[in-house]
Design a protein around this nucleic acid. Structure first.
Lengths: 336, 336
DNA sequence: TTGTAGGCGTTATCAA
DNA sequence: TTGATAACGCCTACAA
């Protein structure tokens, strides 16, 4: 393996000078720079990041922790963030972790290894934060979840108001004349987001003078096609006269629709469906999926802005709420 | 930051003994092990991987290089691989790189930094291999692409026969009575896979006694919904009387269908569509997408088996072809 | 079973 | 503008 040492020997300069050239510093003579770059090129030398990060302290890097690689909303947000950071002199490190893994532990590890100036969490479990976030001493922003109940002075948040959004989804169904509504969502005990959206549903029912029986109308699922598919089948079984379904993600909604069609229901003629997130999938599906569109661009932009605010100005934490939109699609039938 | 040194001091043992405990080695007394684990727990000590990998030589790790995070086929394969490796004493490192980046350079970098015993490439550009793979001295398997024309003694491959599969797709359309067929695929010059599938199309036409005019019937697109959407619109414009479309991925097919519907064509009544890959999306879409299903499980299993064969037995490279299946779906209309 | 010491490939601090 | 040299945190002969 060719190291900086080899480049030094080969170019006739010292290790330090090579290092300077590699890090694009300007206290090097043009001659040295030229010669060293030639040798680097010739040997296809690439620095070893382990050694680099082990030693380096002053790194302008931001770490993004993404919970779940198959979450399209997150993919979109990451892409936006990448573009924004690309225009600054910061480096972005994106780390994907499993839906169920502990993002705070992972953050701690990354802090030791990359010494970032800021952290961006895409998705997160409040429990993990309560347990371990105290040990994170880097400015952070929780994106997509609210951090109001997580009183850490270095943790802000940018999120959609999940209660209002959940309410909006059910409002849409109720106002189209549906009142036998099933819900497919995550486990409200484990997923804070699901819990919030569920509260929104409840509120909507109450406001329309109706009761909502969790036992009958709610089915738990993971955020995947097939898990939602199975949940939809269970839901129909225990609530056979439902006329509409609110699925707490677009992926879930599509899983549910497939299940309904396999049971010979038509969507939306027999049963209406509304999703959540407003990913590109919703627009491409047949029928076009009604959904609650989260403003992923705004989420991305504000998360970065707030993070930089925290890093550079050491501001107070901010808990920002980003508006959502109702996208009507073609999957809701108006009964009125 | 708490280091192994702190743990040593605090526990009363030496750094080496702590290191031994951390690496679960058995030449440590139970007392030492217990005491040190307590201290580690108390201080929430986590080793710094930079330092670890910098020094460590004997790492039983396999690196997977995935080209494109939004490729569902690859996600499925990765998941399978993860499960298989999980049952061994190897560690798996998954690295996602952009569709257009140079996977061989990235591989070189990872080899220096992680010293893996084997490499798995999910997708890859033969050009990059020709240029740089000679410097990779680790057993590798190219998954999804064939390496027959890449005569490196440490590079095997497991792949679907893209020519045969492309032919199968067009056969299906021709045999359903379609003969005005459009094709949406990657740039055949840049994407070897697309080129192979295109050759299959040509073969199918020839076998059915028809000609195929690349200029008229082929539209280039990236492997995304919206790029395929636009390609479909262009295709209809220059080939208005087509009755069927072969899209070289399921995602492309869905983008195309949306475009067709927006132009008031019905699928499959007016225009038939067949996709490629057989991802879960195909089954959940409406109409269920006809597609060429790649056996992602077999691809995953064989790639790992072949890699271990190379690592442990130093066998000759193998170029394995995995069978594919035609999934009829609901998106092809029979004109006969 | 345990400890000492040297080194992994960089960066950073000084002095030249 | 350069070059020694000491870290960075850990692993690993080798010695005890």
């Amino acid at each position: 393996m060719v190291t900086i040492k080899d480049i030094a020997r080969e170019s006739g300069y010292s290790i330090s000078t090579v290092s300077r050239v590699l890090n694009h510093r300007n206290d090097v003579s043009p001659d040295a720079k030229k010669k060293i770059e030639e040798v680097v090129e010739k040997f296809h030398f690439v620095p070893n990041n382990n050694a680099k990060h082990l030693k380096q302290s002053n790194t302008k890097t931001i770490v993004v922790l993404v919970k779940g690689i198959s979450n399209m909303l997150f993919s979109n947000i990451v892409e936006e963030i990448q573009q924004m950071i690309g225009r600054t002199d910061y480096t972005l490190v994106v780390s994907y972790i499993d839906e169920d893994d502990n993002e705070v532990e992972q953050a701690l590890q990354l802090c030791r290894e990359r010494k970032p100036l800021g952290l961006l969490f895409l998705g997160g479990n409040p429990e993990f934060f309560k347990q371990g976030f105290a040990k994170v001493d880097v400015p952070s922003v929780l994106v997509t979840n609210r951090a109001n109940n997580l009183p850490f002075e270095n943790l802000s948040s940018v999120a959609t108001d999940d209660i209002a959004a959940g309410k909006c989804a059910v409002d849409a169904l109720l106002e189209a004349g549906h009142d036998k509504i099933g819900i497919i969502g995550g486990d409200p005990v484990k997923s804070y987001t699901s819990h919030q959206r569920y509260l929104g549903c409840k509120e909507s029912f109450a406001e329309h003078g109706k009761e909502m029986d969790l036992e009958v109308c709610y089915e738990k699922a993971r955020f995947s096609f097939d898990s939602a598919y199975r949940a939809m089948k269970r839901l129909v079984e225990k609530y056979p006269d439902l006329t509409a379904v609110f699925a707490m993600s677009d992926v879930m909604a599509i899983g549910a629709i497939r299940a309904l069609r396999d049971m010979d229901y038509r969507v939306p003629e027999d049963i209406s469906v509304i999703g959540f997130d407003g990913t590109v999938l919703a627009e491409y599906y047949n029928p076009k999926l009604a959904t609650i569109r989260q403003q992923y661009q705004t989420l991305a932009v504000r998360s970065v802005e707030i993070l930089f605010g925290q890093i550079e100005l050491k501001k107070e934490p901010i808990y920002e709420v980003v508006p959502f939109e109702f996208a009507s699609g073609e999957s809701i039938k108006n009964l009125k």
